[in-house]
Structure formats: structure tokens, C-alpha cells
Design a protein around this nucleic acid. Structure first.
Length: 327
DNA sequence: AACACGGGGCC
DNA sequence: GGCCCAGTGTT
């Protein structure tokens, strides 16, 4: 792929999300101040990223802020390998917020397919409409304006700021949390919930200059995704292997393991809702009550789930108790 | 702070 | 069969 150039004149293009070939700062001259621990970590991870970054389409040099925003929403709890084909089809069909804003919601939900959490698709369309109404159709700059959009939380606002606009942001996803928990904190995994201490640590690790902050955000996430993985981390390939607090401590087990409880799946409302949504996506017309109840054994639970889908705006009911995707 | 919210792939 | 994934919105 072509590495984006930080000096590109296009304000929305050329943020440093692609692989770099530079060697980082402060090496070799001997005239600079001693590098901090955080600087050494950033340089090591940044150099690793320059050689190992994946060639993902939302990082390409011709990316748009809208494409980045779409990718970030899709990547909320859905792995990269499943997002990539859906993302390509999505941005080809709806290349701008205005295009998505004008689309029939049923088409949007069908294009979302099996990415999971279909409320995200609804919020993304609401987000597109808000961008048209509040920002003239352009993805806004600034984390406050981004956070005010539907479906955009702390992570996504920071990610769009860094990856789409090339500006400083503290981007902390599950990968970054794990990298910092291990390399700095010495624990197997971060705490179940994102703590204020973690936010402070992440803020301290993010360098101030825009280009360096963007590189650190990309590189730390990529390290967590490819090497410092939740299960079976590849410590032998890690640029931090000689300084990682967790590895140096002998990779102790996860201290929070007892508190992480598994969500059962079979028989849940989530499964029932998913069943209904899948049938509506794949079918052409409305689903009548008979077809609906053939999807699920428990009639009372199904009625409850359909009602919740209607409440969420994912489904509309007709006079006979059948349902359709929203128009 | 805790919970609800999809779906698939991996060990 | 448990666990995890570029989280967000609600209570």
C-alpha cells in the first residue's frame, strides 16, 4: 500500500495511519535529553508497526472521514475480518453521509447483514442524518462535536479525530487497554471496566504532536490485535518483550478471571431478536404472525422481543400483528 | 457501576 | 462450550 504522507495539503487526508518507514525520534544524535520510558515504548511499537501494519482499506491514502467513521462503528465489537467486506460494499453504496441519510432503513439493515448489534446500523444512519443537518454533510472535527453524534462514544470520537483528521487524540480500545495493562501494569488483562487510572495512563502515553499521537494510536492498537492478543499472546515477536512488566513477572494469571462471567446465549432474548432480524433481512415482504412464531418456541418471549425491536426502531408492525423492516 | 445488545470463529 | 472482539446507550 502507499504510505500516507503527513504533509499532505488535504486536511482530511494523509493522517499517519499507514505503515511508516522512519526510525522514530531521538535515536543516534546523542545530543537530546534522555528518553523517557514512554518514549522508548512508543518508538519500539512505532517501528514494529512500520513493518507489520495490516493493509486495511479504511487506512488507505484515499480514505475519507466518513469511511473512517463507518469503519469505527462497524468495528465496535465486530472483528476486522468480518467488517472488511461489509465496509467495502457500504462505502461504495453510500459514499457520503448524505447518501446514507437518504437511504431506506430496510436497505441499511440488510446491508449491515450479520455484523451483529443492528442498533448500530440504525444509529449510523441517524448519525449520517445528524451530520447532514448539523454539519452540512461533512464529518465534524473535534471530539465534542463527534461525541454528540448518535453511536459515537469516547472511543469512536477519539479514533475519528486521530485516524480521519490526523489530530492528537487518546485512543483507547480493548487492544490498547491490554497492551498497557501488560507492558506497564504487569497484569494479564485490564480490569473488567475502563477505570480513571487507565485513562490517565493512556493519556500519559499519548505523545502531544499530532503525527506522533496518530502513529501511537494506530501502532498500539495493531500490536494488541496482532501480537499482544487476549489469548496466546506472541510475546516472542513483541517489540516490548524485553521490557514488558507482565512478561518479566512470569506472565501471572488474570486476577479478575472470577469476576468475568460468561453470557449464556441459547434461549436468550438476544438470540430471539437475532432470529427475527435475520428472517426479516432475508425475506422480501412482511412476516405474518404464523411465520414469526415458527422462528421461536416461546410465544410470550417472542412477543416481548418483537415489542423491544419495535421500541428500538428495528421493526415495524402491521395491523395483523405481522412485522417488517422499517421503510 | 451494571446491564443489554449479535454473531462468528477459535481453542 | 467458554471466550473474545477498534463499544455505546440506558438505568
Amino acid at each position: 500500500m502507499t504510505a500516507p504522507t503527513p504533509s499532505s495539503p488535504r486536511p482530511d487526508r494523509g493522517a499517519a495511519t499507514g505503515p511508516r518507514t522512519g526510525t522514530g525520534t531521538g535515536t543516534g544524535t546523542g545530543t537530546t535529553a534522555p528518553r523517557s520510558c514512554a518514549e522508548e515504548v512508543r518508538d519500539a511499537v512505532g517501528q514494529w508497526y512500520s513493518r507489520h501494519a495490516r493493509d486495511l482499506p479504511w487506512r488507505a491514502a484515499d480514505r475519507t472521514a466518513w469511511g473512517v467513521l463507518v469503519s469505527e462503528v462497524m468495528l465496535q465489537q465486530t472483528p476486522v475480518v468480518r467488517v472488511e467486506p461489509a465496509w467495502r460494499a457500504w462505502v461504495e453504496r453510500w459514499p457520503t453521509p448524505g447518501d446514507l441519510a437518504a437511504a431506506p432503513t430496510a436497505d441499511v439493515l440488510r446491508a449491515w447483514g450479520r455484523l451483529g448489534y443492528p442498533r448500530r446500523a440504525l444509529r449510523l444512519q441517524d448519525c449520517a442524518r445528524a451530520i447532514v443537518e448539523r454539519h452540512g454533510g461533512d464529518v465534524p472535527r473535534g471530539e465534542d462535536a463527534l461525541r454528540a453524534l448518535p453511536g459515537v462514544g469516547e472511543y469512536t470520537a477519539a479514533a475519528v479525530t486521530a485516524f480521519a483528521h490526523g489530530r492528537h487524540a487518546v485512543v483507547v480500545d480493548t487492544n490498547v487497554r491490554r497492551v498497557l495493562a501488560r507492558a506497564v501494569g504487569g497484569t494479564a488483562l485490564p480490569a473488567p471496566s475502563f477505570t480513571a487510572a487507565e485513562r490517565r495512563l493512556a493519556t500519559a502515553y499519548a505523545p502531544e504532536p499530532d503525527d506522533a499521537a496518530v502513529l501511537w494510536a494506530c501502532a498500539s492498537m495493531e500490536l494488541g490485535a496482532l501480537v499482544c492478543t487476549a489469548r496466546n499472546p506472541r510475546c516472542g515477536e513483541c517489540p516490548l518483550r524485553d521490557r514488558c512488566a507482565w512478561r518479566l513477572a512470569g506472565r501471572p494469571a488474570d486476577e479478575h478471571a472470577a469476576r468475568r462471567r460468561t453470557q449464556t446465549w441459547a434461549g436468550t432474548d438476544r438470540q430471539a431478536r437475532g432470529r427475527v432480524m435475520a428472517a426479516l433481512r432475508e425475506g422480501d415482504g412482511p412476516l405474518d404472525r404464523t411465520a414469526l412464531h415458527a422462528l421461536w418456541h416461546d410465544a410470550a418471549q417472542l412477543d416481548r422481543c418483537v415489542a423491544s425491536l419495535v421500541e428500538d426502531g428495528l421493526v415495524e408492525t402491521d395491523d395483523d400483528g405481522g412485522c417488517t423492516l422499517p421503510t
